[in-house]
Nucleic acid binder design. Structure first.
Lengths: 84, 84
DNA sequence: TAGTTATTTAGATAAATATCTAAATATTAT
DNA sequence: ATAATATTTAGATATTTATCTAAATAACTA
């Protein structure tokens, strides 16, 4: 839960997640959507990956990232317990 | 959305929210549940309040805090759009 | 093989944040 | 009015984090 909230506590990372909702993208494509250096984006991707919100797959020289929506169940359940 | 994620991105604050799910509590009662100074708890309460996750009401010399679950709708909706 | 492209790792830095103690404020009780 | 209790504000500090540039790694291409 900690890693999940930490991962989502950043506007850039939330936007990345929203981008990946539409389609899988490689690291460069993602970076092109922001005015932030590629290393910084790489760092954000790593945090999202650690939270299991995204997965990555090497495809030749590219690394393709996909959204993992299943982890969001945990988040929704946590919130729902609060609403009783 | 930013304030909301920021507020929930802390174990202590999430526990406060869980405590307030059970019943309204004043600042001192909340502080007693943690090994953290009262000023620090007060600071956490302020962050939760800024995110509209809790409300406060002065009752004599006490300040009673309550959970506001309605704001959680926004959070759930954000998550649900990701799951399409 | 040498050069080019894609991505990550390393190391540095500035800003944000969680925490503390001490002091201020507000309310109740004697 | 004074003392006691509840809470917040102020100011300081150590840790975390978002960002950068430079360098390293990996995989295509000519």
């Amino acid at each position: 839960m900690n890693l999940l909230f930490k991962a989502l506590n950043d506007e850039t990372r939330r936007k990345i997640v929203e981008l990946l909702k539409e389609r899988d993208m490689n690291a460069g494509e993602i970076a092109d959507k922001f005015n932030i250096s590629k290393p910084s984006i790489s760092h954000h991707l790593e945090i999202l990956k650690r939270a299991d919100l995204i997965t990555s797959e090497k495809k030749g020289q590219f690394v393709e990232y996909s959204l993992n929506t299943s982890i969001l169940e945990d988040l929704i359940n946590w919130i729902l317990t609060l609403k009783k």
